[in-house]
Design a protein around this nucleic acid. Structure first.
Lengths: 217, 217
DNA sequence: GTGCGAATATAGACCCAGTGCAGAAAAAGT
DNA sequence: ACTTTTTCTGCACTGGGTCTATATTCGCAC
């Protein structure tokens, strides 16, 4: 049964079409601005009909945002695959610091111009930012599930913890990306990014109880 | 100069038109569903032209969501106006518990049918939920500002704390509202809502550091 | 009151995102 | 080569949102 699991022509063409549309879209959006480019123009640049474009990307925003979809369950996976003697928060902290060191775009600390411009566009275009929030929500749910199942945490605590962690993570990422968009280089930003991340995770770990206390000795 | 600060006819008419549009919109949306009603129908019901409607409400979502705008700076105000010996988190906790006791709709614990239906609609309609998120962002910024200025907290900590607090608050509110939408009464839910709120605020105050620790003695 | 200037309202034409449908084109299986 | 199935396309349509020009209404001074 020499079954080669090669995708077959149909599948390959689909992938190429998907990529062609996505690339044409990003290229046009970065050049002229998201709102200034219509889906009709993207379709034309990708040499595809408007109707076909919508078969691949359910909405205009997805032309940009689908690229971020991979990270949807990343936090959950980190929690699930951690060593037995590591708390979820420690695992996530280590993972984020590693992402910073690797200049992973998901940390906001990658200064390749195309990526910087992409992030800036996402944050500054409200409809794109809104779509990102829905990914955030999915990531939250996945993380809450991981906390419930691998850390023996009750439903409410899992949800509350997940929403806190995701929100903080997102804050750190945006902060880094915006600084790079402002002209800083990734290497310049790196030390500050690390110390900010450490401080933020410390707040997550130890709580906000002492904040604004009258005698913060 | 017997200046009565009465609004004047023009202003009064504006307010009445605003209210008429808003009421017509909510009424139609609750009866037929948000997506099933077009802005043209709302305009007709309010006896206004479509163009005028958009002069009062910049987008269809605002017909619903503007009603929540009051609470945008509520958390910030609570932090700013707290007593000197109270930490921000304590003040917010007390304020939320009070809102629960008062069955304030902002706590999600008001079971007046129209309010329950409204909340359900907002959570289940993704474009409305997205618009709510933008209010959340504004609330976050206001809260971060209040923490910076009245609690002597540095920029990063303020932003991180604000995003955590808002996210948790929102989680609690949604949870209550969804349970009421599921048929529970506010009085039935109240004890659970209180204990959930207390546990969530305890997590905020003391941190997530112990979550999932190997030996949770 | 009359009349003028500034808001505000309206109608109607427009742009664009997204969907439904019917048929052409192309790949897969025989 | 023929048929089936999937994908692509063109076209028409809905609905949100904006622009322009015109009409109405209010505020205010005379």
């Amino acid at each position: 049964m020499g079954v080669t699991n090669e995708p077959g022509l149909r599948e390959r063409k689909k992938q190429r079409t998907h990529a062609a549309i996505s690339e044409a879209a990003i290229e046009l959006f970065l050049r002229h601005g998201y709102d200034q480019v219509s889906v009709a123009q993207v379709a034309e640049a990708a040499e595809v009909s408007r109707r076909t474009l919508f078969a691949y990307f359910p909405a205009k925003e997805d032309l940009v945002v689908q690229r971020f979809a991979d990270h949807e369950t990343e936090s959950a996976r980190v929690v699930e695959s951690r060593a037995a003697d590591v708390t979820p928060l420690e695992a996530l902290r280590a993972h984020y610091l590693d992402a910073l060191a690797r200049r992973d775009p998901a940390s906001g600390l990658n200064d390749i111009p195309a990526i910087v411009a992409l992030y800036r566009m996402v944050f500054e275009t409200s409809s794109l930012a809104a779509r990102m929030h829905r990914f955030q929500a999915a990531a939250e749910q996945a993380l809450a599930g991981a906390l419930r199942e691998t850390a023996g945490v009750d439903e409410l605590s899992a949800r509350v913890a997940a929403v806190q962690i995701q929100a903080v993570h997102w804050t750190l990422t945006i902060d880094n990306a915006m600084r790079l968009a402002g002209g800083e280089s990734a290497d310049e930003r790196y030390p500050g990014a690390v110390s900010d991340a450490e401080r933020a995770y410390a707040l997550l770990a130890n709580g906000l109880g002492h904040l604004g206390a009258p005698d913060p000795r």
